[in-house]
Computed example of a mutant assay.
Amino acid sequence: MRQALHVRFQGMEESAALRAAAEERALKLEQFCADLTSCRVCIELDHKHSQQGRPFVVRIDLTFPGHELSVSHVQNEDAYVALRDAFDNMRRQLEDRIGRLRGQQKARAELGE
Rank of each mutant, 00 (worst) to 15 (best):
D61F: 00
T63C: 08
M1L: 14
H67D: 04
L27C: 08
D88A: 15
I98G: 11
R92W: 04
S15A: 12
L5Y: 03
L101Y: 06
Q51R: 12
A107D: 12
G103M: 03
L29N: 00
R25C: 02
K48Y: 07
E14Q: 14
D35M: 01
L27H: 08
Q104L: 10
Q105V: 12
H47L: 07
I43V: 08
L36Y: 09
R54G: 01
A20K: 15
V81P: 02
Q3K: 10
L69I: 02
P65A: 07
R2I: 04
A79C: 06
R25F: 09
F32C: 04
L27G: 15
E14C: 04
S72E: 09
G66V: 05
L29Q: 13
H67I: 00
K48H: 14
L94I: 10
Y80D: 03
M12V: 06
Q51H: 12
A22K: 06
A17H: 08
C42S: 13
A109R: 15
V7Y: 03
L83R: 03
V41N: 00
R84D: 03
L36M: 12
R8P: 01
H67G: 02
C33K: 15
L69V: 01
A22D: 02
V41P: 11
A16V: 14
A79W: 05
F9A: 06
R91L: 14
R2A: 11
L111I: 05
C33I: 10
D78K: 04
L62S: 14
R40Q: 08
L62N: 13
R25V: 02
C33F: 08
A82R: 04
E44N: 12
E44L: 13
K28M: 09
I60D: 03
R40D: 14
H47K: 15
A17E: 14
Q75S: 13
F56G: 00
R2D: 03
E13K: 03
N76D: 15
R84K: 13
A34G: 10
D88T: 15
S72I: 05
G66S: 03
S38P: 05
S50H: 07
M1K: 10
R84Q: 13
L62M: 14
Q3A: 15
Q104T: 07
V74C: 09
E23I: 07
D46L: 11
C42E: 12
D61K: 10
A79F: 06
V74P: 02
R40H: 10
V74F: 06
H67T: 02
G66P: 08
E68V: 09
Q51I: 05
E14Y: 04
F64C: 01
R19V: 08
Q75P: 01
L111G: 01
R84F: 04
L5C: 00
A79H: 03
L111V: 05
R92S: 13
G53K: 03
H49N: 10
N76S: 04
G53D: 10
R40M: 00
L36N: 07
V7L: 05
E30C: 15
